[in-house]
């Protein structure tokens, strides 16, 4: 048994994990950041290509949803979603995203940032 496991481990030793399903790779403004000036956009970069028609980004403050534009792909990056923001007053904001990756799987998540 152990010998078999050993041989199999040697076979799979060079494993390189690959992504699938769109998970958040990085965000601007960054997760948990505290900003001196309000951001003009939210740019979310995912681990794989996303479908903008079936993805949403919602920004909430203490009173509810902040009106924003629809998410779009920048022309040079199929893994990014961008929304334009109105001028945000100081306060804490929650970004709630739903992404549909190009392999049709749906993922979601949220994070916060603060504007001083």
């Amino acid at each position: 048994m152990r010998l078999a496991a050993l041989l199999m481990l040697m076979m799979a030793a060079a494993a390189t994990p690959a992504a699938a399903h769109a998970f958040l790779e990085r965000a601007v403004p960054p997760v948990g950041s505290e900003l001196a000036t309000p951001p003009g956009q939210i740019v979310l970069t995912f681990t794989e290509g996303v479908e903008p028609l079936f993805s949403t980004i919602e920004v909430r403050d203490a009173h509810g949803s902040v009106p924003t534009g629809k998410p779009r792909l920048p022309p040079d990056n199929a893994r990014q979603l961008v929304i334009d923001l109105p001028s945000l007053p100081g306060g804490e904001y929650t970004v709630i995203w739903h992404a549909t990756s190009v392999d049709t799987h749906r993922t979601e998540g949220s994070y916060r940032f603060t504007v001083h």
């Binding site: 390189t16 690959a18 992504a19 699938a20 399903h21 769109a22 794989e48 290509g49 199929a78 893994r79 990756s101 190009v102 392999d103 049709t104 799987h105």
Partner: peptide, 16 residues
């Protein structure tokens, strides 16, 4: 191309 492999992109995606 309809599944995970098609979404990975890059050299790793092409290989898969």
């Amino acid at each position: 191309l309809l599944g995970h492999a098609g979404a990975i992109g890059g050299a790793a995606g092409a290989q898969l």
